[in-house]
Design a protein around this nucleic acid. Structure first.
Lengths: 99, 99
DNA sequence: TCAGCGGGCAACTGTTTGGTTGCCTTTCTG
DNA sequence: CAGAAAGGCAACCAAACAGTTGCCCGCTGA
């Protein structure tokens, strides 16, 4: 799951959060707000983009990045699925123990 | 967020899923079902444990690992929170554009 | 029109990490 | 009690990764 791997990095998670709460921004802007180089930001954005969490639009010489809401919803659904499965298993185990 | 990092690894995710759907198991058992060494499994379990996703119980010479449902629920809640925030921002942006 | 800003490309570095092997301790069992 | 099974500890390796620097290219606007 490249999605979790993408969110697993501290810097990347911060990037996504700030992009989501502050609206679309350019690489330079994001880099200015972060302790890291523009290049580092670019690399992280690429990883996030590969995970489908983020998308870029060209605007003149700028590249504007925004957040992709659907993918996060998918992650949520996935976790929900897994935890449902867990509960089913726990239920079965409990039943088994009680028999 | 070490939790996402923990789930980000393919092997670890598989471990969690199989532990969750197959019930608690020992390291040796998990290793036997996986293409990796017992040591590799141990390391992964430690990472998962540090993320709070998994817990171990000693039983004689064995160490039985089981899944910790609460933590996954927390992750779900977190993603929910984030996506709500995103939707709020998108709403504001939309309103801003339409004005 | 040209200075400067935004960004892409590539090479390099140090650290983390996924995985292995080897050896030792503890516990179970015939 | 001896041997086997389960696991812990530590050293080691290769690959991946986060981040940097340097250079170059294409827009943009005074």
């Amino acid at each position: 799951m490249p999605l979790f791997a993408a969110l697993g990095d501290e810097t990347r998670l911060a990037l996504v959060l700030r992009l989501g709460s502050g609206g679309p921004r350019s690489i330079a802007q994001l880099a200015a707000e972060s302790p890291y180089t523009r290049q580092a930001i670019t690399k992280h954005l690429e990883v996030l983009s590969a995970a489908g969490l983020v998308r870029s639009d060209r605007r003149g010489r700028e590249r504007i990045w925004n957040v992709e809401a659907d993918r996060l919803a998918a992650a949520r659904k996935y976790l929900e699925q897994v935890s449902l499965q867990w509960e089913a298993t726990l239920g079965r185990l409990k039943q088994f123990v009680e028999e």
